[in-house]
């Protein structure tokens, strides 16, 4: 067993549990601060120190093993700024980012966001890309962000990097990514009814024949 501190109270828990399961072992029937339990949803952002150490650490509770001496606190909700916008009325430019989130100009490069990211993203550098209007860079470098909000809680300039990045990715996906011609051709073909007869034929086939058709279909190499 190891000893950890959860929200100021000490508990003994077995070694080897994730922080999330350690909470549960200790008796917390969690409602907040838990979602996917697998590192994808960002619900379980957690801040901790070790007893006697001034340094702060950041983790996803579901993806981090509890260690002896951890003093743990969760951030189940943090108010994050998100202005109203309609993507279809926006231009994919740096001015748009600055228009929606003018506060990003106040970033003074302290790097706290990067240090607090449990996904180990270089948050400060994607925010720098946002400032420069580098939407493609912003979208690419922020892609693995799961929006846990730890950087939001820590940013001394009161910025909300995950929301800025999300807008950047949507602008890139809608306006800047190269178009897939084959996709639009296919959508038109289907609208024109090109495949209707073929599918109807399959629907009309007796089961045995449908099965034969399935077993003998060519598989793309």
């Amino acid at each position: 067993m190891i000893e950890i501190t959860i929200l100021g109270q000490r508990y003994q828990v077995p070694e080897g549990l994730t922080i999330l399961k350690a909470f549960e072992w200790a008796g917390f029937h969690l409602k907040r601060g838990v979602g996917c339990r697998a590192g994808f949803c960002g619900a379980c952002g957690t801040v901790y120190r070790f007893i006697g150490d001034y340094r702060l650490h950041y983790a996803l509770a579901c993806q981090t093993v509890a260690q002896s001496g951890m003093v743990l606190g969760t951030i189940p909700f943090f108010p994050a700024q998100r202005p109203a916008y309609e993507l279809s009325t926006l231009q994919p430019t740096g001015e748009t980012l600055l228009g929606v989130y003018p506060e990003i100009m106040t970033c003074f490069g302290c790097n706290t966001c990067t240090k607090s990211c449990p996904q180990e993203l270089d948050v400060m550098s994607y925010m720098a890309a946002a400032l420069r209007g580098g939407i493609e860079n912003l979208a690419d470098a922020s892609f693995d962000c799961i929006m846990c909000g730890l950087c939001v809680a820590r940013c001394p300039a009161e910025l909300v990097p995950p929301n800025v990045a999300l807008l950047g990715r949507r602008l890139y996906g809608k306006y800047l990514a190269p178009q897939a011609e084959h996709l639009h051709v296919r959508v038109q073909e289907i609208r024109a009814g090109k495949y209707q007869a073929e599918i109807q034929d399959l629907k009309d086939l007796p089961l045995a024949e449908l099965k034969t058709r399935y077993e003998s279909r060519q598989i793309e190499a």
Binding site: G173, P178, A180, I199
Partner: peptide, 27 residues
């Protein structure tokens, strides 16, 4: 399901979803 599939991809893209693509835009 199968008939509306390509349209769903196009719709998601128009909402700003970033699918993996080749440099020439092919998905």
């Amino acid at each position: 399901l199968v008939n509306e599939a390509p349209d769903v991809i196009a719709w998601l893209e128009a909402l700003g979803t970033m699918f993996d693509k080749e440099p020439n835009g092919r998905l």
